[in-house]
Design a protein around this nucleic acid. Sequence first.
DNA 1: CGACCATTTGATATGGATCAAGCGATGTGG
DNA 2: CCACATCGCTTGATCCATATCAAATGGTCG
Lengths: 231, 231
Amino acid sequence: MSMHTVHPSVVAEQPSGTSAFRPPRAPAGGNLVGSLDLMGSPLSFGRNEEIYGENDEAEYVYKIVRGTVRIYKIMSDGRRQIGAFYLPGDIFGMEVGALHEFSAEAIGNATVLVIKRSALISLADRDGVVARELWAFTACELRRLQRHVLLLIQSAQERVAAFLLEMSDRVASNDAIELPMSRQDIADYLGLTIETVSRTLTQLETAATIALPTSRRVVLRNRGALCRLNA
Amino acid sequence: MSMHTVHPSVVAEQPSGTSAFRPPRAPAGGNLVGSLDLMGSPLSFGRNEEIYGENDEAEYVYKIVRGTVRIYKIMSDGRRQIGAFYLPGDIFGMEVGALHEFSAEAIGNATVLVIKRSALISLADRDGVVARELWAFTACELRRLQRHVLLLIQSAQERVAAFLLEMSDRVASNDAIELPMSRQDIADYLGLTIETVSRTLTQLETAATIALPTSRRVVLRNRGALCRLNA
DNA sequence: CGACCATTTGATATGGATCAAGCGATGTGG
DNA sequence: CCACATCGCTTGATCCATATCAAATGGTCG
């Protein structure tokens, strides 16, 4: 892994072919959003382009304007574990230590606002409210990870159901979800194989719990059944 | 689960029959230790006694003086997931929200110092250094959970090896570990069954990677092999 | 149309769970 | 002091969910 990512210069924003994302109901990042809106400058990344690498100097914090980002680690055996997906409105890359804990990549074309981490930190040093927001942000990530740990000890059906409910909360207008990520991404997020994810979705469709008009579009037909699986 | 735990009044400290723990090399809690040393009052709990319950008001923060504590959740299907073990010197129970995310129990007899969370929070409001320490503490927990997520997608051997190395870092004088927790506790921490934990330890012993003079005592005979499994 | 990539589906293998029994400490009462 | 119950742990036999290996399908873009 590279020890320091050179940030690509600001490139012209390529219009994404698909899906205008709605702002998620409860964007990760909370009030930090304000600071970033004020101070960030926009930057665009293409499909699968690296935004930063694991162990890179954590120079910037990012807020997504458009597109989706995955953060991940590659394990020694070559497997990839995706730690989180970030959607428009979400903030990522804010580390407490000096280095990034994960690598980050744009899943499709993505536009982000960037702000210098050092600026945010020194702002927090002067302003207790900002300091509190940074803490709350980290706590939010902590709770997300706690839920993820609980997910990973469940069955494949439970994991996929929980994933769909999570995505539904974050991207859906009502019960239709446009998935921005591939089956492989989902598998690496849930600790399953691509085949198991695919089969599980098929099972859910057969059970009329969901519909799959296309592989990337999921319609929740029976949210109660999903919640029961999730429990 | 109880909505509010009544704290048992301070009871006479029963001397534990076994194992004087050495202070861990890098106790969770860092500099918060200072505040708690100054302000905490001691409290003892017996084997399996509840310290607080999930969703209880997070009134206190705890620092372990003696003994071991587990925090856990009971899932809807009855399974128990242990989120962490805390050893002497460690701090636990510090929530950012108003409620405890997990339940906490003493594994054996344990003594803790307690401090009012509200006191710590208001101290942080006045003192930026304390605020920073609280943030750093939460970040430390976050990194611990990140490692745990990576653990849970590995094989049984890898999980057990990682567990032994973790415990070795935290409790061992050199290569002998006195485990304070049962096989069931280990299993619920690693997302395995008690039988799989037992068999895996037996395999490691057969491979001369560890020795098991008693079921609770583990001697690391080949740390390199464990690290390779962990990788 | 044809190449390519993502996804689905099928067949089989396997690691860990489950069910069941045995074993070794520890403690209790006779 | 010993018989016996209890509890935590280990070991064995079998089962099952998911991984793995392999192939077919379908959608997208040149």
